[in-house]
Amino acid sequence: MVLPIFLTLAAISILTALLMVLSKNPVHSVLYLILTFFAIAGQYILLNAQFLAVVHIIVYAGAIMVLFLFVLMLLNLSKETEPQKSAMWKLSGGIAAGMLLVTLVGALRGGIEVTIPENASGKVGLVENLGMVLFTDFVVPFEIAGILFLAAMVGAVLVGKRDLQV
């Protein structure tokens, strides 16, 4: 019973991700991306990682995408004002994307040994275990990530305060 659900969710996530890239209207892109996030959250739930799933929804779908949408709504989007990109730009974009693809394929080609933890008692993704792991084994990366966020925040404030004498 898990496999069909997984396949459906996977199909939905790939389809909506493609639609996100292909759709002309940026607002539609954002909406497709939200659907992608929901499909991924569904995958988390299949893995019984409810906490991750709901945090994924809150942070990505609930906050970041709202901000995206917020910014997009403020832009005056219409066919006339759409910037016409020159062939040069298109070419450089294509090369950049192609290089990313090559890197990804190269990295994945050898096949990453997927180890499904055998102790998966269905409790791995729950809050207690996750918190325990974060605050014991991975406390240093966790704190570093925190400092990174702090730095980003300070940077954002600096950028936001234009009249600040630097």
């Binding site: 809150i58 709202v66 949408l69």
Partner: peptide, 25 residues
Amino acid sequence: DVNIGILYVVGLASLGVYGIMLGGW
């Protein structure tokens, strides 16, 4: 009785704004 009940409620509260945003836009 999901063990993240309150987060679920918060998550839905944060999703609620989409209806308003889409409608308004």
